[in-house]
Structures are given as C-alpha cells and as structure tokens.
Amino acid sequence: MSDKLHFSLVSPERELFAGEVDQVDAPGSEGQFGVLPGHAPFMATLKAGVVVVFEGDKRTRLFVRSGFADVTPQGLTILAEEAIDLIDFDATKSEAALASAKLELESADEDDAKVRLIETISYLEALIASAA
C-alpha cells in the first residue's frame, strides 16, 4: 500500500489539480467524506462545496459546483461541472452576479427561469461563503 494518494480534479475547462497527496476531503451529496491512500473503491456525487487537498502541512482549497468522485485502486478522480482554485478567487464579480440573479428572480414569470435562478443563487452563495 502506497503512503500517497494519486488525486486528479478535472473540470470541462482544464485539469485543475493532479498529484500525489496525503488526503482529500470532498463535499459529497450525502455528506462530507475523506479519502486516504488505500481507500476502498467507491463512487459518489458531489454538491457545491470545497474540496480540501492535504499535502504535508500544505492545504489546497478548490471549490466545485457539482460532479462525481471516483475512488479506484489507482487513486481519486473528481470530475467537476465547474472548479475554482480559491486562492485565485475574487468575490467581487460573484457578489455582483448574486445581486443581479436575486433581482432577476423577483421579476421572473416562468417556473423554469425561477428554478435556474434559484440554482444559480444557491451556487453563488456557496462559492462566496467558501472563500470567506
């Protein structure tokens, strides 16, 4: 059994992280979970939240919108709908987008538009809160 876990986080735009790590904590749709080297294989869906990557004393925080986590004997792969390295995150644009979505929701007439706006608001609130 290796003392490191191979971890890869991929979004449609790019591979955001790849390397050998000590542990990864992720926001599962049924609750937070952690993966260590030698973990039993499983798959899980992810909700919006922070993936924390542990490399010795270093912690990397990556926000994922949603996606899937796949633990295999080779390691952990996260396929994210959207992923952001929180070290690079500037909340200003997201706060403006959140205010705009809330205003748009107040005047939305169609149910589909309301559902889309509620999902967007929830995502932006989670993103802003995670960066604080």
Rank of each mutant, 00 (worst) to 15 (best):
S2E: 13
K4G: 00
L5D: 05
H6N: 12
H6M: 08
F7G: 02
F7M: 01
V10F: 10
E13W: 00
R14N: 14
G19I: 00
E20S: 14
E20V: 05
E20K: 11
Q23N: 10
V24F: 00
D25F: 06
D25Y: 07
A26V: 08
A26E: 03
P27A: 07
P27I: 05
G28V: 05
G28C: 09
Q32F: 11
G34V: 09
V35M: 05
L36W: 12
P37R: 00
G38F: 05
G38A: 09
H39Q: 13
F42D: 08
A44V: 06
A44D: 10
L46F: 11
A48L: 04
V50S: 01
V51M: 06
E55I: 00
K58T: 05
K58E: 12
T60A: 08
R61Y: 14
L62Q: 00
S66L: 07
F68Y: 15
F68S: 11
A69H: 00
D70M: 11
T72S: 13
T72F: 11
G75F: 02
A80F: 02
E81D: 13
D85P: 04
D85I: 03
L86C: 08
L86N: 01
D88T: 05
F89P: 06
T92M: 09
T92L: 11
K93Y: 08
K93D: 13
E95C: 05
A96E: 09
A97D: 12
L103Q: 13
E104K: 14
E104F: 02
E106R: 00
E106L: 08
A108F: 04
A108H: 10
A108M: 06
D109S: 10
D109G: 14
E110A: 13
E110F: 15
D111V: 07
D112C: 08
D112Q: 15
A113S: 15
V115L: 14
R116K: 15
L117A: 09
L117C: 10
L117N: 12
I118N: 15
T120G: 09
Y123D: 01
Y123Q: 07
L124H: 04
L124P: 02
A126C: 13
A126M: 12
I128C: 04
S130K: 13
A131S: 15
A132E: 14
A132R: 13
